[in-house]
């Protein structure tokens, strides 16, 4: 296996084969992978928030779903992928703390809004979301390898899923 590349908060990484992309400790954030199986090219972005419209400035486009998805597609296009072949997998968007009566508040509901925004953006860009593991109340660590195109999702206590 290749040395894993860590995709930190709001980071965006694209790579040709061979590459292993990793994000540790996702809570309300989203780990989104878009890949092209034929050319073995993939990119991962660590999305923190759904919507950039409230932001005053935008030093890291990977931070918001509405800026991250287009940028990821753009960076993949630079590596020569065929857009119609692109597929997406995602994980994250949990709600770590549950507070009675505040599930939908701006603070506590950010995970589900991240999932919703990312799903919509993928659909609008014509990218098929082939697998996802989102929501709930547990944090996730994710790993994607261009060798297998599998998205490994680890959760404390309940083990590992392969998407």
């Amino acid at each position: 296996m290749t040395q894993p590349i860590h995709v930190g908060m709001a980071d965006l990484v694209v790579s040709k084969h061979p590459a292993t992309l990793v994000t540790l400790g996702l809570g309300s954030c989203i780990g989104l992978v878009i890949y092209d199986q034929a050319s073995k090219t993939a990119g991962m972005v660590h999305i923190m928030l759904p919507d950039s419209r409230e932001a005053k400035n935008l030093p890291k486009p990977g931070k918001f779903a509405d800026t991250a998805v287009p940028l990821l597609l753009e960076e993949l296009a630079k590596l020569g992928v065929n857009k119609s072949q692109l597929r997406a997998k995602m994980a994250g968007g949990a709600q770590m703390f549950s507070m009675p009566g505040k599930a939908d508040s701006a603070i506590f509901g950010v995970g589900s809004r991240n999932v919703e925004a990312t799903t919509k953006l993928l659909a609008a860009s014509g990218i098929r979301l082939v697998a996802s593991d989102t929501g709930g109340s547990k944090g996730r660590s994710v790993e994607f390898s261009t060798e297998t195109m599998k998205f490994i999702v680890k959760t404390l206590g309940t083990g590992t899923k392969e998407l």
Binding site: L24, G25, L26, S28, M48, K63, M96, F97, G139, S141
Partner: peptide, 16 residues
């Protein structure tokens, strides 16, 4: 849970 997952709350609160 994982420290990183829990601290997402703080990061997203200020990230807006």
């Amino acid at each position: 849970d994982m420290l990183g997952s829990i601290m997402d709350l703080v990061a997203s609160m200020f990230g807006v």
